[in-house]
Each structure stands twice: as C-alpha cells, then as structure tokens.
Nucleic acid binder design. Structure first.
Lengths: 334, 334
DNA sequence: GTGAAAGCGCTAACAG
DNA sequence: CTGTTAGCGCTTTCAC
C-alpha cells in the first residue's frame, strides 16, 4: 500500500490566498464571518490547489468523524441470501450521503467478532452505530452500551419493551400479521396455519403474536416453527400437511418461507390459492413476484427503515421506538 | 450526536505505568524492543484504564488509516436483488478483519455520487479501494485513477485487456461458458441458444464469447440479449421461443436469467430438461437450488473473489489480472 | 473581521 | 532499551 502524492495543506491554501490559516479554515468550513473578497480568494486557492481537508487532523480536534458504523450481527448465511439487508443498507447509505457521513460496515459472524466490534466502537472511530439482526441472546448490545456510542437498532431488540430509552426502528410486525390473518379469515378459510420465523428474533415473535391476536384459539397443531429460510418453509409445510391435512390457509413469517411452502404444496398437489391460500411477509419483490403463483404478502418499506434509522441517529433523536406501518399487497396466492 | 465520556490518552497510560509516552506507544504497537517488565506494566495500565488508541491522532502522523473503501457503482436495483454483492462483501470483510482493516462502504447511484466518491478517495481517507460493477462507459475509473489510490477491481474492467497494470479479480467467465455450452452439446442438443447478460459489463461479454467459442456457427437467432435479471430472462426466453420454436437448450448468462427463462418454459408447456435443457451461471444457491427443476449452473466462488481482492489490495500486489476457475454444477435442468 | 498561538493524541527520529 | 523532542494538519480561543 504505497502512499500517494503529498496533498496540499490548509497552510498552502492560506499562503496562496494571502491570508492566515485561521481564515482559510473558516472559509473551508462554511465561510461565516469572513468578508466576501477574502472568501473568494480562499475558494480560488482551494480550487487551484485541489485542496481536500485532512479528515484525521480535523477529527483530532473536533472529535467528530462524520462516519457511522453499521453493524450486521448475523452468524448465518441468511442475511446474504435475502435482499433485506442490502435494501436497508441502501436506505442508510442514501441518508448518510445526504449528510456527508461515511458508512463503516462491520460484519460479524461469531463471538470473536463481537469483541472486535466492541473494541472498534469503544475506540471512538465513529459518531454512532446502526445495529441489525439482533438475536435474543446476543451479547452485542451490552458491548455497545458499554462503548457509549449513540446507537439506533434495526428491529426491536428483544430486551426492550420500547420504553427503556433504547432507540429502534421497526415494522409493525404484529399489526401486519393481524391484517394478513384477517384477510385469510375473510376469505372464508377456517383452518389457518402459521409458519413462524426464527423465534429468537423479535420480528418472528411479533408476527406470531399478531397471528394469535386474530386466532387466539388456533390449536398448536396449526403453528409450526420455521426459520425464515425457504428450506425451513418446506420442512414446516410438510410437517403441517402431515399433522393437519385439511389446512386451507398458511400465513408464513416471510416471503422466503412462503416460497418454500408453495413448493411443497405444489409437490403435494395442492392448488394455491384454491386448496390452500398462502400469505407471506416482506414483499421482497424478487421473491414475491416470482413465485408461482405470485405471492400475496405484507409489505414493509425496508429501504425507508434504513433511511429512518440513519436519520434518527444523525439527529441524536431521543425517541424510543419508531414503528413503521405495513400494508397488505394482494397478488394471486391468497 | 452527543460526545461520549473522555477516553484515556497514551499520556495517562504512560503515567500510570511510570514510563514515557514513547515507551507506552511502543508497547501498544507490538512492544518490540521494550523490556518485558515494562511491557507488562504498560499492558496492565492499558487494561485498567480501558485505553484505546485514538485512530485520528495515529493516522495524522502515520498517514495510514487501516481502512479501505468498497465502491459499488450500480445504478440499478439489480445489485440488491441478487446476493452476489453481499457474498463478495462478506469475503472482503473477512479478509479485512483478519488484517485489522475497516471497510468503508461507498454506494453510488448516479453521476453526483461519482463526484462525491472521487472526492472521498482523493481525500486520503482510506488506504485503498475495491471497485465493483463497472459498466463500460463508467466515469468512475478515471476519477479513481486521478485520486491516486491503490485499487483492485472486481471483474475485468472493460478498458483493460489484462496487461495494462490494472489489478483485478475475475472469474473465468469465458471458460465457464465454454464448459456449460459443451455440456449442452454433449447432451446431444443441436439448437443451443444463449441469453446474454447486460452487454455493457465484461462478464456478459466474456460469457457470450465463451458461447461462441464452442458454437461459432450459432445463428444470430439463437443469441438474445438479456440483462441479468429474471424479468430480462423471461422476455428473452419468449423472444427465443418465438423466433426459434425448436430450440432445445439454453445457456443463460446467470442464474437469475435462467430462473426467468424456466418460468416461461413452464408457462409454454416445455419440459425441462426433456424438451429444453437449461444452464445458468453463478450457482447462487438460493436461486439455483430453488428453481423447478433445480438448476445446472456454472459455479464461481464469489466469496473467495472478494477475499482475494482484499488480499491483493492489502499486499499491494502488482499482479495485473487474477482469474478464478469455475466449475460446472450438475443438477436437474441440464 | 482577522491573525497569532495553543494544542488535539499520537509516532518517530534522535540522543542518551 | 528508554526518554526527549518535534511535529502530523487542523480548529479554536483570544487578542488585536
């Protein structure tokens, strides 16, 4: 990693503009309180020299970094098989970019990584952190708390009831689930099942709760545990069909799960939606639109979630939990 | 963004350990040439104080940042609908982590963003850059060249013939395509078609070249342009079926395209592989394993590509182009 | 409004 | 081997 050509310093700019370093600095940082002609001269010098501020020097004195960390704590490959993560990232990136902040990505896949991330955050490299995919037993939150870095969580953390001052952005998982199940019931379905997500994540728990809100009396036979993956959806659907052959509707915890379920239904000769209606969650376009039949699902605006997280962090918002609404998107599967 | 509690400085550590700042610094940076008892004392002081080096101060003098930028220049949503990007990112992240480097993610989606990225790289915030998804007419390479930052490209840049000193990592797209097409021919197929990728990317061009290597005489009717998306695959497959109804094999430029093609084939009542054999490219598990039938495809080790890119960058390698081998993965579709 | 001067926390010669 | 010294490039009082 060789070093690049020496870049001009503020000193050089000041010299060229015939002003002091202090004045040059003022201009570079907005130019408030500097008379117009000087501003002009400094601007020109900056231009001519191709001056770019040295961020390290600046951070050293301001103690700000204009950078935030995005921590994705996901041991499994799941994150990478599903566009969810990428979409949120994009929302975050847009918002940060708009505020001239950089995005430092911290991917973790194990206990060792946690320590590393904790150290990094504690190291004061960034002005804040955006944290995702927490599982109920995740040690990361504590590390982060200790690091004392302003943090916004993506998805309600399991240990937060939404009132403890923890800032997070979440979808209305429970409400969305309710709407989906109500839709199924409204279709006249009487044996509505639910394939859950990974129950160590609050989104899965909340969706299950939403299901139960509507179908409090649903027998345990009708609830089977999945894990947010297509394979999990297949497995769960098989089990469901075995223990309850007359099931006539399935609310799957996400689109990937629903896709797996659809495959098994087809394989077993059940028609969708005629024999069994299916609803997913997420409205992950590349999945939901491409299944056969296209998937009715609960839409959440994932990119907006990312954007909002970044916004809350940058604003230093003290609001506890923000819950974004969901909407039911009707396609052919239910 | 409120500031966190003041962190201890090297000065504090030195004082507590009863040594000079210089010695403390030496210990913190590996401890070479410092006598054991002192090392021990400094270590303890670091521990007790919870000292973490101030990276800004360090960078200011070393001119190193232990950070590299990952630039993803992809205007379209495509990157986000396909796990390719995420997988490479993971490979990169692993390698960087192993070398204590941070990953700064720069997502761009337009000309404005290019300027911003150029400025950032020129600003000397990072020690190097990893650049992806270049299109043939992309202005980014020039900006990056001018920024004078060591760079490794993901995928062969269009303006490079592999000898110009540009460092890149690529899959053997051409060889992989050849193997796929040969397999199809070996199956006894006589009207083998190709649905290309977005031809403004070298990977698409190279795969097309590989196809032609084997089937130099394939009529233009048998080559139809796609864009690496399922929708493009569908459109292309329809066109193919219209202008050449007796096609009996399709080599699609990637798995997503193949998935689209499969859907159209099913819709038109063609059996796969009996009537039409289909091969994809990438071996993107969540796609290739979940299609119906499961997809025969050309596998490339995407994560390894990412890892290798990072390795080359960190090592300051001067090697021009590195091309990773591909392997044909046989499933049910061909 | 503008400049001079004092560091921010750290590393790297250079002496000792 | 260890300490002293001199900045890295910038912002920010504080005088003028």
């Amino acid at each position: 990693m060789t070093e690049t050509a020496p870049r001009p310093t503020l000193e050089a700019v000041a010299a060229r503009a015939g002003v002091s370093r202090a004045t040059a600095s003022r201009v570079v940082n907005g130019g408030d309180g500097v008379r117009e002609p000087l501003v002009e001269r400094v601007r020109r010098a900056v231009e001519e020299l191709g001056y770019v501020p040295n961020q390290a020097a600046r951070s050293l004195v301001t103690r700000r970094h204009d950078a935030i960390a995005v921590v994705v704590a996901e041991p499994e490959t799941r994150v990478f098989a599903d566009p969810f993560f990428a979409l949120q990232l994009r929302g975050i990136s847009k918002e940060l970019t708009a505020h001239d902040n950089q995005l430092v990505l911290l991917l973790t896949e194990g206990r060792d990584d946690h320590a590393r991330v904790g150290r990094y955050l504690a190291g004061g490299h960034v002005d804040g952190a955006l944290v995702f995919s927490l599982h109920l037993d995740d040690p990361l939150p504590e590390l982060i708390q200790r690091a004392g870095v302003p943090t916004v969580f993506g998805g309600r953390p399991g240990w937060s009831d939404g009132t403890s001052g923890v800032v997070y952005v979440d979808s209305d998982n429970r409400g969305g689930a309710r709407e989906a199940v109500r839709h199924l019931v409204g279709l006249g379905r009487t044996r509505v099942a639910h394939i859950t997500g990974a129950l160590d994540q609050t989104s899965a728990v909340d969706r299950l709760d939403g299901f139960r809100d509507v179908l409090a009396d649903a027998g345990p036979r009708l609830v089977v545990e999945g894990d947010f993956t297509p394979a999990g959806g297949e497995r769960a659907m098989r089990e469901l069909l075995d223990r309850c052959p007359d099931v006539d509707a399935v609310f799957a915890a996400n689109d990937l799960t629903a896709a797996g379920a659809l495959r098994v239904l087809r394989e077993r000769g059940r028609r969708v939606p005629d024999d069994v209606a299916v609803i997913g969650f997420d409205d992950m376009l590349p999945v939901a639109e491409q299944t056969d039949p296209p998937l009715t699902t609960v839409r959440q605006d994932i990119e907006e979630m990312g954007r909002l997280m970044a916004r809350l962090l940058l604003r230093g918002s003290a609001s506890a939990g923000v819950v974004l609404p969901t909407t039911l998107v009707r396609r052919a599967s239910a």
